[in-house]
Design a protein around this nucleic acid. Structure first.
Lengths: 198, 198
DNA sequence: GCAACAATGTTGTCAACGGAAACATACTGC
DNA sequence: GCAGTATGTTTCCGTTGACAACATTGTTGC
């Protein structure tokens, strides 16, 4: 009994995009655990097996979400970096942009950081390199200007990156009230600039 | 057809403990996602509905794991703090102990930080206060000794805590090779002690 | 134009899971 | 030695991810 009585075409046309969109909404609303392929299919109005043509299994969909997440993060950081010229200002801008992204997309962020060590996640690792490189360049910039001590750029940058990530984690876990996050980022940047100067 | 042909007693006797043990092994081996109550029951040798007497649902088991995790983390930090007397040494010891715990129990740690904002997780929040208080006390100690600037103890301490947590996250996500983690922690502690001194 | 062929969507099926109810067995206090 | 409770078993249900077989549409070579 085919209940496809409406005039919906047999082919959706952009199922993949529709799936990703719906998945991101679901991710935001209920978390990755309760993201169900069948739910998404229902919401979009296709059969329960249709998503399989675009994502061979559930994890593939989650991986695609993570990959897109890194691209969006990269964008957010890039546009934040444009808002300031001096080095401390640029660090501050990047730091607040990162934690804002991380708290506004907490479930997505978790996905981005945990889908990676699975085999075959090379696309994700590659996508992650863009925002990471951005932070690295920022540190190198500080070193050239003499605002930061010389030494392994990556090691210094990763510490800053880790601090921001940690602050976001604590915020997302409600271990730190959200209204304190901005101040925390401020403190972290200050301490970083003091602790890593020549 | 009851296949309970062996002499296994009707009552297991310590199912709850056995479940938690098996669950922790499963967590370590396959992650929280693929932790199945029925699998655990099978492994232990009880019926699939037996765990329900001890954990009303799956999440309750995960919560119990998280709670136990905080207690173990507290222990690890406590014994690490005993290994050094001077303030910088104690910070270093606590920092390496934390990241070691976090990388050796990555799936558990994730559980500890994400099971918390669920309603009715007051037991977990309470369990989390022990290790958090420990870190806070450490910072206060540094302030009393004049090694750290005065000001809101918590804010200063949280930044350090966040940094360690972030380093662990990056390590667990394979975004930083494991062999670099120790050096990263070292750098982070150094920068912290420099950046937060009076 | 049209005949393969590829791409995309549908239907039907399966095993596994979490959850729940009804029942069985063991323990405990009295 | 018995009543009440704690713990475990059986049986069932609805949902899910995965898979295979089939249907429809789009595309491409000729």
């Amino acid at each position: 009994m085919p209940d496809q009585s409406d005039d919906r075409p047999y082919h959706h046309g952009s199922l993949r995009t529709a799936l990703l969109d719906a998945a991101e909404r679901g991710l935001r609303a209920h978390g990755a655990d309760r993201l169900s392929l069948r739910d998404l299919a229902r919401e979009i109005g296709v059969s329960h097996a249709a998503p399989r043509r675009h994502f061979p299994d559930r994890q593939a969909l989650l991986d695609a979400l993570a990959e897109a997440g890194f691209a969006r993060l990269d964008n957010a950081l890039r546009s934040a970096l444009k808002t300031a010229d001096d080095f401390p200002g640029r660090v501050r801008a990047a730091a607040t942009a990162y934690t804002r992204f991380a708290t506004e997309n907490s479930a997505l962020l978790e996905l981005m950081y945990t889908s990676k060590h699975r085999p075959g996640a090379s696309r994700i690792v590659q996508a992650a390199e863009a925002p990471f490189g951005l932070m690295n360049d920022l540190i190198a910039e500080g070193q050239e200007q003499g605002a930061l001590q010389d030494g392994p750029t990556q090691r210094i940058g990763v510490v800053l990156f880790a601090t921001l990530q940690g602050i976001a984690t604590l915020g997302n876990g409600n271990l730190v009230p959200p209204e304190l996050l901005d101040g925390l980022v401020e403190t972290a940047v200050e301490q970083f600039l003091r602790g890593a100067r020549p």
